[in-house]
């Protein structure tokens, strides 16, 4: 178990290293720190001097080393636009995005699990055909159409839910601005998290259905039936537990892509999270911020995937150290 986690951590570090290279290359090729520091009227000679002083003429590897050292100390450069350390800017937007992703994921699990199971148990029933049809449809509808659609009906036509922003937030332990603990914040969460959930729910339904169908064919399910165990127990305990093992791994990776989808969702609902920040950074050509965003998202992605693997190893008895010998 310890060696397993150790191995995963090494892999994670390696991936992070690659991400840092990508971020560095972006900043190095697109960014121009000199422009950030001086105005248009500065002479070419002065620019060159400054360039030399900033170490921009050093060998690439040396520059990368500096970039990496900075990154390790939490220094991902200054935002052109905000005139603040990029990491601070991103971290201030992190709670909004994490809360949105968390709620979306919760919705996905709540929706996809029973639907996927039912579609696997009674593949011929009207309900599972409907579920499958809708999830195919869901897979092929772009998220912004769903979002606009939801916004149109719930916010504009029926005026039951707010259409943009995070609403009221409260401070949680002084380090987190949360919208989870008040009604207004929760109301604002609904539409964005539903549209975000809409991307992953069909994938999860299909995933759970396919895995469950496999599991239902297995010897131990036939054996469970022969023991006289009740149908709900067989489906929702014996089969589902075995279904969830692969779903956790594949699902965890899919969940990582949520971060990408938050860019769209947040832009549409003007949700003040990292995704919206990134879109703004792109329009403003705020290169350090773009590169820092990639770094942070990369870290989140790697951390979630590593966590997923560790959770998987804890849920699956076969990965654990044998405590008994047979």
């Amino acid at each position: 178990m310890v060696s397993f986690i150790g191995r995963r951590l090494c892999q994670a570090l390696f991936v992070l290293l690659i991400i840092s290279v990508v971020s560095f290359v972006i900043q190095d090729n697109l960014g121009d720190p000199v422009r950030q520091m001086v105005g248009q009227s500065v002479s070419l000679q002065e620019r060159a001097a400054l360039q030399q002083e900033l170490g921009l003429n050093d060998p690439l590897l040396q520059q990368y080393g500096r970039f990496l050292m900075g990154a390790l100390q939490g220094d991902l450069g200054m935002s052109y636009y905000y005139k603040q350390p990029t990491l601070d800017v991103i971290v201030s937007r992190l709670p909004a995005t994490l809360e949105l992703s968390f709620c979306a994921l919760l919705l996905v699990i709540i929706l996809a699990t029973p639907l996927g199971v039912i579609a696997a148990i009674h593949p011929k029933s009207l309900l599972s055909r409907a579920v499958l049809f809708i999830s195919t449809l869901g897979l092929s509808i772009p998220i912004f159409i769903v979002a606009v659609f939801l916004m149109y009906f719930f916010a504009i036509e029926w005026r039951v839910l707010p259409s943009f922003g995070r609403g009221e937030t409260t401070s949680f332990l002084g380090l987190w601005q949360t919208g989870l603990f008040n009604k207004d914040g929760l109301r604002h969460l609904l539409l964005p998290s539903f549209s975000l959930a809409f991307v992953l729910t069909p994938i999860f339904i299909r995933l759970i259905r396919a895995e469950m169908q496999d599991v239902l064919q297995s010897d131990f399910i036939r054996y469970a039936w022969s023991k006289g165990i009740s149908a709900p127990r067989i489906y929702f305990l014996h089969a589902l537990k075995n279904t969830m093992l692969p779903v956790i791994t594949v699902g965890g990776i899919q969940a990582g892509t949520l971060v990408a989808y938050t860019i769209l969702t947040e832009s549409i609902f003007q949700w003040p999270g990292m995704g919206l920040l990134f879109m703004e950074a792109v329009t403003r050509v705020d290169v350090p911020l773009i590169s820092a965003y990639l770094m942070v998202v990369g870290v989140i992605f790697v951390v979630t995937n590593t966590l997923v693997d560790v959770v998987y190893s804890m849920v699956n008895p076969r990965v654990r150290i044998p405590g008994y010998s047979a």
């Binding site: 010897d219 036939r222 054996y223 022969s226 537990k241 076969r318």
Partner: peptide, 30 residues
């Protein structure tokens, strides 16, 4: 009646027991 008055054991014991539950759990469940 199934599993109490009429019981069955299968060919492949390694794949017939549910890998996710302990031996004790599976006996006690019956």
């Amino acid at each position: 009646i199934t599993g109490s008055d009429i019981a069955m054991i299968f060919q492949d014991p390694m794949t017939s027991l549910n890998p996710c539950f302990t031996v004790g759990y599976q006996i006690i469940e019956a």
